[in-house]
Design a binder for these strands. Structure first.
Length: 521
RNA sequence: GGGCCAAUAGCUCAGUAGGUAGAGCAACGCCCUUUUAAGGCGUGGGUCGUUGGUUCGAACCCAACUUGGCUCACCA
């Protein structure tokens, strides 16, 4: 077997080693959709996807399940949701019984789920979704809940190893939503040793006995629920955030509780958090602003989004940037691609690693040709020259191949989103139009612009050096210094004091369009 | 109080099969006969947090310590 160099392959090896040969390996991920699912949550999903792909590459048959823990309680109203007061009246109910105030879906949880389910295919991730509310409410886990009740004292013993305030016999491994109010403000009074639970609704002070096999109101507490599902689904691998992976955290207790259900803990690792950089003041916990996978995909192509996660070890923190770092990330990816296709030298040590990162970054099959690579920054300028017309920019490349067009189109959309929403002011410009108000110039500046207009129209449209000379000649002709002419020309062309290097800029825009603008003066 | 992670060039970091320390940016220099914003080439720069240990050999493994961050001990 070849030496695994990528962390995803190393974990695949570990899963096979620890779980032994199996006909089917189950890899799991999941979350409570109690608010907008953000890019930090996505790290878990893509981490599993990368390991799933690594296992499949080794010839394993793999099931990738994603659990929507949507029978959890609505504990607080996120600040980014509309109709806060209305939502507040649904606190303590399961999130599937809370209305979706954004109008997207049939309930609150579903709205948050849909955001993710719609975006994941764009980055080539196709899990099998499990909806826990539906499962619990249809009494799918009645036997498991009964078992947990039977093992209650063992569970308490495990949990008490880490608690400061120990649980006593009045604690139960299950929670009950009131059949009267749907809220979880209930107290379990007794269990009949089978499937009957007697509880009191504390709001209404009503007592009722329900059957776990025929009513939808009971569920397991998280620290019991998680290990129960490891056994139910036969989970071999499931990573978790560091809040779970601390000593005494839920992974720690679950690995003990799972034995009571007759199973073993999956292979796991701890992934670190993601931070966000360069969104100005837009992101802060107080405003409730969160960055979702969809937000990231507006600025980063699917491949580059995958690349950021595939090229970073999961237990290190990193930030996703919306500032100038975007240029660097694109450049890094382009270099990685060039190395993959042998267009850039790379030493032996790094080659295999880079190859693997590139493969894992692809949404689907690895393309047979590299992208039509244009530096991101240059692409931003081209788009601005064309007023954001993506098709015009694409059709200006005569040597682009058929299978490169769609990838370039995606990159154009991202570049345009970045330049218009996140780039520094210095990067932005718009070419002057026919109906724009004319810029006021001094007599000498006007003379220089006129001279330049003439000289550009006589230029061959190709020789950049010749064009540069013509700019300096124009300044001399008008009797001003080049450093005076440049700002004047920039003002005329793009309404700013400075801009992209002028000669190349004029060449890129084309002499006809430049002359048309200059000739107004 | 327990646990986890980080500390490497001015800055941001890479460096998990122990084998002479790397990249990008910044700086400096040169070229493109001359831009403030997209070019090219080159140069300098590090006691790898500290102290011990293992080893022929340690940024890497072990122990202790220093500093910073995170997390659990509520809930999920």
């Amino acid at each position: 077997m070849e030496q695994s160099v990528h962390w995803a392959d190393i974990y695949a090896d570990k899963i096979i080693r620890e779980k032994g040969p199996k006909e089917l390996y189950t890899c799991a991920s999941g979350i409570t959709p109690s608010g907008t699912v953000h890019i930090g949550n996505f790290r878990e999903i893509i981490s599993v996807d990368l390991v799933v792909r690594a296992l499949r590459r080794k010839g394993c048959n793999v099931r990738f399940i994603y659990s929507w823990d949507n029978y959890d309680v609505f504990r607080k109203v996120p600040k980014n949701m509309p109709e806060q007061e209305k939502l507040a009246t649904f606190l303590r109910k399961p999130i599937t019984l809370v209305p979706d105030t954004t109008g997207r879906a049939e309930n609150y949880a579903r709205g948050n789920e849909l955001d993710v389910e719609e975006k994941l295919p764009l980055v080539g991730i196709y899990p099998e979704y499990l909806y826990q509310a539906q499962r619990y409410r249809s009494s799918l886990y009645a036997e498991q809940m009964k078992l947990a009740l039977e093992k209650k004292s063992e569970i308490i013993e495990i949990l008490n190893q880490y608690r400061t305030t120990p649980l006593d016999d009045s604690w139960w491994p299950i929670a009950v939503f009131s059949s009267f109010t749907d809220k979880d403000n209930t107290t379990i009074l007794s269990w009949d040793g089978e499937y009957g639970i007697t509880y009191r609704d504390n709001d209404l002070d009503k007592v009722e006995t329900i059957d776990m096999r025929t009513t939808p109101y009971t569920k397991l507490h998280w620290r019991v629920d998680w290990p129960m599902r490891w056994v139910y689904e036969g989970v071999d691998f499931e990573p978790a955030g560091k809040d779970h992976h601390s000593q005494g955290g839920s992974f720690d207790t679950s690995r003990q509780v799972v034995e009571l259900f007759g199973g073993h803990a999956p292979v796991s690792f701890q992934y670190d958090f993601i931070s966000i950089k360069g969104r100005g003041g837009k992101i802060s916990s107080s405003s409730g602003e969160v960055v979702s996978l969809g937000d990231v995909l507006e600025v980063y192509t699917p491949e580059i989004t995958r690349y950021m996660f595939a090229s970073t070890r999961p237990n290190t923190e990193f930030s996703i940037s919306f500032d100038l770092d975007v240029l660097k990330i694109y450049e890094d990816y382009d270099n990685c691609e060039r190395r993959y296709f042998g267009l850039l030298p790379v030493n032996d040590k790094k080659r295999e690693q880079e190859r693997r990162i590139y493969e894992l970054s692809q949404v689907g099959e690895v393309p047979s040709t590299p992208s039509y690579q244009i530096p991101f920054r240059h692409l931003c300028n081209l788009l601005q020259i064309n007023g954001g017309d993506i098709e015009a920019v694409i059709s200006s490349f005569t040597d682009i191949k058929e299978d490169q067009v769609e990838r370039l189109r995606t990159r154009c959309r991202c570049a345009w989103a970045w330049i218009t929403q996140f780039s520094p002011e210095d990067f932005r410009f718009a070419l002057a139009g026919d109906n724009d108000e004319k810029i006021s110039l001094t007599e000498a500046e006007n003379k220089g612009v006129k001279a330049l207009c003439k000289k550009v129209s006589e230029w061959d449209g190709e020789d950049e050096k010749d064009l540069a000379q013509r700019i300096y000649d124009s300044a001399a002709e008008a009797g001003i210094e080049p450093t005076e002419l440049f700002p004047a020309v920039y003002r005329v062309l793009i309404g700013k004091e400075k801009g992209p290097k002028l000669a190349l800029f004029i060449k890129t825009v084309g002499k006809e369009r430049i002359c048309k603008i200059l000739s107004r003066y």
